[in-house]
């Protein structure tokens, strides 16, 4: 069982935060097939949020084929996200470390690095859509 939390300052809507936390837990192997998610009532009572927020998050996860609701019982994980891409994390991290070292040598501070990364990330993401 996982426990949800909400980050008020993130700007991400609460329902999306719940979706992301489930996906994240699936990627890290914290949630596996057959595991039960907290019931809507449990999440609502714990976080003091609107029940529709939780329902919407669970519906979205269902739509993505990651969980399935068993009426009267609860919501269960039906898929896994720890796929082949997990193996690629190591080498990619290594590349990223090298790039970060290069950026520091070029005199960029943490904020400049983050700004450069995010603006490049956004531009390529937009190019991919276009």
């Amino acid at each position: 069982m996982i426990e949800f939390y909400l980050d008020g300052g993130s700007g991400v809507s609460p329902y999306l935060q719940l979706v992301q936390q489930v996906r994240h837990a699936l990627r890290l192997g914290l949630l596996r097939e057959g595991d039960q998610l907290p019931t809507v009532k449990e999440v609502v009572a714990q976080l003091a949020i609107n029940a529709n927020t939780v329902l919407k998050a669970y519906r979205e996860l269902e739509h993505e084929g990651l969980v399935a609701a068993r009426p009267g019982v609860g919501t269960f994980v039906t898929a896994t996200l720890t796929d082949a891409s997990l193996a690629a994390h190591g080498p990619l991290r290594l590349d990223l470390r090298r790039w970060l070292a290069k950026a520091r040598r070029a005199g960029l501070d943490d904020e400049s690095i983050e700004a450069l990364f995010m603006s490049t990330f956004r531009t390529t993401a937009q190019e991919d859509i276009a």
């Binding site: 809507v40 009532k41 609502v44 009572a45 714990q46 976080l47 003091a48 949020i49 609107n50 029940a51």
Partner: peptide
Amino acid sequence: LQHLMEATA
């Protein structure tokens, strides 16, 4: 608010 939301669920 926790109690109120729990009741609505």
